[in-house]
Amino acid sequence: MEWLDAILSSSVRMGTPILLAALACLPTLWTRDINIGLEGIMIFGAFFGVAIGLVTGSVWVAITVTVVLAAIVGICFGLLVTSLKVDVFVAGIVLFVFAGGATAYLLDTIFGAKGNLADPSIPALPVITIPGLEEVTVLGGLLSGHSILTWTAVVLFIAMLVLDRTSVIAVYLKAAGSHPQALATSGVRVNRMRVLAQMWCFVLASLAGIQVSLGQLSLFTVGMTGGVGFVALAVVIFARGNVALTALISLAFGAATALTFQVDKNVVPHELTSILPYAAALVALIFISRRSRRPKLAAA
């Protein structure tokens, strides 16, 4: 039974960055400005979380500063895509490639490190253990011992669920993507909605990145997000903009990723098992595409 607990716990832990990144990307799906540079934002988040945590010693400062920076950069990205009319596909690719290069550069110039940054004084994300629940099988693994960002993700999920149904902003975001002229001729500034969506994306995706670096081993390795941002992209496409489905599929992928670590390294080396989430996503993509029209990543 401990084995089940371990898997559940690890599923939630692996699923958190996927969920955060997917929730991040969702409004950009609504506005049809899907940000494929999600992975890049996560790498930045992972790096800055560690860097600021190391320099200030405080995980709270690290989170706050990273989030604020992400919001600012997100607004700039939004302006790039709206006012400067840069194609969001191009911008996303550049974001992804730039993130890899920039974090390696900063790692070297600021910390003199190449490849990774590990230091005992890098703080870790606070973990919430629920006393009493900790020992309960299944529930213990599922609910206790997770970082605050996991709980943040849950709160954000619920918030988005509510906003999706009833808020004016959600209506505007979806109209901005589905029929921007309709929204514009109703007097709403479409570009503001698009910029807002990008800002939201950057903020949540940077949190996802922090979860990856500070939420596990409290270190930074080049490329440590390992394509998780692209898995989140797949999740968002599969869920077709539905908030509840997004969460469900994110957790499914979290579980799939957790399972790959369960396989005995001597039977199947990790290189092969690491492809499981991506292979699953590809198979799901093929299966789902056969049946209906799906939003595309490079939609005209």
Partner: peptide, 30 residues
């Protein structure tokens, strides 16, 4: 897949990278 089953080429090629590269490395280590 893109032409006949309407599979989005960006996503499929993206995911394919994360399958092909590890497989190549596995074979190179094996």
């Amino acid at each position: 897949l893109a032409a006949h089953w309407n599979v989005d080429i960006v996503l499929s090629s993206l995911l394919a990278n994360y399958i092909l590269v590890p497989v190549c490395i596995f074979l190179a280590n094996g």
